[in-house]
């Protein structure tokens, strides 16, 4: 059983809390410590960004994080080492990579290296379902689970395609925009129903999750989990207590697990 499947089984009706950070931000050592801090706060799954020079799907906070890492000289190989180090310490926690297509095509054996480092899944932000097959085929061969994005404006036919190609979870975007977009607490239950009908992997909401009430609203809308990124990265960059933030978000995944 994959680490994601084991995680969903363990959690039952409780929502999964995914915590995102950019690898190598602001340097390799700090970044490694931050990953541990996320687990200490109770993160169920870790999502890591491999920094890219032109992150078009990201808002200012994650852009700045990528820039800090690249300015510190962080290479893709360093990111795989960080993942391997994390994997050695935390054998059960699923690790998903979020990055951009140019880094993947530039490195022969990217998927294999990711799998060997101990990553569980890969989401390529600028590869929509339309272009995904050549990438997901390679991921399948390497033993990396593909993750694709579904948005409120994604038609049913595309959701069907996502169901056929994706494995670990479905990264849901309930509103338009980029990462860090201010959430209005509205999560799209209809998208979740449509994904379920299509037979897609479990829906997890990203983009604009920064406070416990966002987490509760997403779980209430039927999500199997949430991913918080910009709020964590922003807090870490200001020297704040990331473990505490993660703990408060994790607590919110339990609050609505019982009947209303």
């Amino acid at each position: 059983m994959s680490r994601y499947a084991a995680m969903f089984e363990r959690l039952g009706r409780e929502g999964a809390l995914g915590a995102f950070v950019t690898l190598g931000d602001p340097d390799l050592q700090t970044s490694a410590g931050l990953l541990d801090a996320l687990v200490a706060g109770g993160a169920d799954m870790i999502e890591v960004g491999i920094p890219f020079s032109d992150p078009v799907a990201d808002g200012p906070v994650i852009q700045a994080a990528a820039l800090r890492a690249l300015n510190a000289g962080v290479r893709v190989a360093d990111c795989f080492e960080l993942i391997a180090g994390f994997r050695a310490k935390h054998p059960e926690v699923p690790v998903g990579i979020l990055t951009y297509a140019n880094l993947v095509v530039a490195r022969a054996g990217f998927m294999r290296d990711a799998a060997e480092a101990g990553a569980e899944s890969l989401l390529i932000a600028d590869v929509p379902a339309l272009e995904a097959e050549r990438f997901t085929r390679e991921m399948d061969q390497a033993g990396i689970e593909p993750v694709l994005i579904a948005a409120a404006n994604t038609p049913d036919a595309t959701l069907g395609r996502i169901a056929g190609l994706a494995k670990a979870y479905t990264y849901c975007v309930s509103r338009v925009g980029i990462t860090g977009t201010h959430a209005d607490g509205e999560f799209d239950g209809e998208l979740i129903e449509r994904l379920e009908k299509a037979g897609a992997p479990p829906p997890i909401f990203g983009f604009g999750i920064s406070r416990p009430e966002h987490v509760r609203a997403a779980i209430r809308a039927g999500a199997r989990g949430v991913i918080c990124g910009s709020a964590i990265v922003d807090l870490a960059s200001r020297g704040g207590n990331v473990t505490e933030l993660v703990r408060s978000l994790k607590a919110a995944t339990r609050n609505d697990s019982g009947p209303q």
Partner: peptide, 22 residues
């Protein structure tokens, strides 16, 4: 998409999913 958008191996539509309908 109705056209392939490819020129040999080049081209395509590599954008975040949210932009594909546009």
């Amino acid at each position: 998409m109705r056209l392939s958008g490819r020129f040999g191996r080049f081209g395509g539509c590599h954008v975040p999913e949210i932009l594909v309908p546009a």
